[in-house]
Amino acid sequence: MLFKIRKLIKKTIIFFTIIILIIVGGLVVLTTKYPIGYKSAIVKYSNEYNLDPYLVASIINVESKYDKNAISSKEAKGLMQIAPQTGQWAGEVLGIENYNAEMLFDPEVNIRIGTWYLNNLFTEFNGDLDLVLAAYNAGSGNVSKWLDNEEYCRDGVTLSVIPFKETKDYLVKIQDNYKVYSSVYKEYIMNPTDKDSLYINLLHNIRRVLKELMRNI
């Protein structure tokens, strides 16, 4: 009888250990693929520019994986990958004192400019989210040309075809990210503190170490 009880206890412990490992593993994957940081700036400027904070959080992840020092091949900088021309324009309109491109590596400045630019795109494209996201990725000039082209737009209002594969994929990535940030992180994002900045820095340091190890293998 005692042997059976011990065996049952052992199986129960193993079962719950496996469950805990699955949960921990899932959380590790989740926070690695969908990190979150700079919540106070995200909420602050999303409110200021009448944007969905979960959308902004999703864009940051797709654009830079929350790496404030990210630079693209086209010299777009920071969390929301602001192009130099856009940054200069925003710096003038917003009256950012002594603005220079290096300020785009400051999360507060970058998110402020990124949300301001998104707000402009929403105005330009009459609140159509797909057009806004396409413009954020491919440029508003390209989207306007597509809307005037019957090959891509039948009614002059909605794109039936997005000719750039990168832009088409970009919209899908944002949609996938939005599902996570608006559900899993719902309460977390709306509790705007930046205590997670240490976690973000640690995450990127781990990524850099792994990249170096891969290069040397």
Rank of each mutant, 00 (worst) to 15 (best):
L2G: 14
L2C: 10
L8T: 13
K10E: 14
K11I: 06
I14Y: 11
F15R: 11
F16C: 09
F16V: 02
F16Y: 13
I18N: 08
I23M: 09
V24R: 01
G25L: 07
T31R: 09
T31V: 13
T32M: 10
K33P: 01
Y34L: 07
P35R: 06
A41E: 11
I42L: 08
K44Y: 08
L51F: 03
D52H: 02
P53Y: 06
L55A: 00
V56Q: 01
A57P: 03
I59N: 00
I60N: 01
I60A: 00
E63V: 08
I71G: 08
S72D: 10
S73T: 07
S73D: 14
S73V: 05
E75M: 12
G78W: 02
G78P: 04
L79S: 03
I82M: 10
G87W: 01
G87N: 04
A90Q: 07
G91I: 08
L94E: 12
G95V: 04
N98V: 10
E102A: 13
N110M: 05
G114M: 04
Y117V: 00
L118V: 02
L118S: 00
E124G: 07
E124Y: 06
D128N: 11
D128G: 02
D128V: 05
L129K: 02
L129F: 04
L129M: 10
L129W: 01
D130R: 05
V132R: 00
A134N: 03
A135C: 09
N137G: 08
N137F: 06
A138L: 05
S140G: 11
N142Q: 09
V143F: 02
D148Q: 13
N149W: 05
Y152F: 15
R154G: 12
T158W: 04
T158M: 11
L159F: 09
S160C: 10
V161T: 13
I162L: 07
T167W: 02
Y170S: 03
Y170W: 07
V172S: 08
K173I: 06
Q175H: 13
Y178K: 04
K179G: 07
Y181L: 05
S182I: 00
K186A: 14
Y188L: 10
T193Y: 14
T193C: 12
D194I: 07
K195V: 09
S197E: 15
L202S: 13
L202D: 11
R208T: 15
V209C: 09
L210H: 10
L210E: 12
K211R: 15
K211G: 05
K211C: 06
M214E: 15
R215T: 14
R215A: 15
